[in-house]
Simulated scan of single mutants.
Amino acid sequence: MLYAVICNDKKDHLHIRLEIRPKHLEYLKSLGKTLKFAGPFLDADEKPDGTLVVVEAKSPEEAKSLAENDPYAKAGLFSDMKIRPWRWSVNNPEEA
């Protein structure tokens, strides 16, 4: 099952995001095929202010564990985090 991890950054925490970014990217790369895609949400000035990560996991608990082990989460960057089951219906590269 795919899970979308949807996070919003705490206000005025861009410096934390920039500082932790290399560790965050290293963590995401370490997930291998578990990670389907990821990227930041952008504010009106096109500065990152949140995160979208889609992972394949056996359960919501496993997806939550993956999300909580992200260096961004460990650094306290996020004001909130939602994890929702998600179905890739259109342009799924695994169905091409």
Rank of each mutant, 00 (worst) to 15 (best):
L2F: 15
R17C: 02
L77P: 05
S30W: 12
S89D: 01
R17L: 01
V54N: 02
A38S: 15
L77T: 08
P40S: 08
D70H: 13
K74R: 15
H13N: 14
A44I: 07
Y72P: 08
V53Y: 04
L42W: 03
L14A: 05
A44D: 15
Y72G: 08
K29V: 07
R21C: 09
G39F: 11
P48Y: 04
P71K: 09
G39M: 12
L25V: 11
E61R: 10
I20G: 09
I16R: 11
D80I: 06
L18Y: 06
K11N: 10
K47E: 12
Y3F: 15
L52M: 07
A57Y: 00
R87V: 13
L66M: 02
E61H: 10
N92C: 13
L42Q: 05
N91Q: 05
D43A: 03
A73T: 15
K23Q: 15
D9W: 01
A96H: 07
M81N: 04
N91R: 07
G32F: 14
A75Q: 14
P85Q: 08
L28C: 06
K47F: 05
C7I: 00
S89E: 03
P85Y: 09
G32M: 12
F41K: 10
A57P: 00
V5K: 02
R21A: 11
D9P: 02
R17E: 03
A4H: 05
H13G: 06
A67N: 00
K58Y: 00
L42V: 05
G50L: 01
P85M: 07
T51V: 02
K82S: 07
P22F: 14
E19H: 08
A44R: 12
G39L: 11
M81L: 12
L2P: 09
D70V: 13
A44Q: 15
I20T: 15
D45S: 13
K64D: 08
V53W: 02
S89K: 04
R87Y: 09
F37W: 11
S59D: 04
K11C: 04
E68F: 09
K64Q: 07
P93Q: 06
L42D: 03
K23G: 04
W88F: 10
S59H: 05
S30R: 07
L52D: 01
E68K: 05
Y72R: 07
G32Q: 12
L28W: 08
K29N: 13
I83E: 01
A57K: 00
A63H: 04
N8Q: 08
L77C: 12
H15Q: 09
W86E: 06
K23R: 14
W86P: 06
A73P: 07
P40F: 05
R84W: 07
N69H: 13
A67W: 00
G32H: 13
P71V: 04
H15S: 11
V5H: 09
G50R: 01
K29I: 05
S30N: 12
N69S: 11
S30C: 11
A73L: 08
F37T: 14
Y3G: 02
F41Y: 15
L66D: 04
L35R: 14
V90M: 03
E68Q: 10
N69G: 06
L35I: 13
E26K: 13
D70L: 13
D45Y: 06
A57H: 00
H24P: 03
L18F: 07
R17T: 00
M1R: 08
E95G: 01
D43V: 02
I6D: 05
V5W: 03
F37V: 15
S30M: 10
V54P: 02
D49G: 02
Y72T: 08
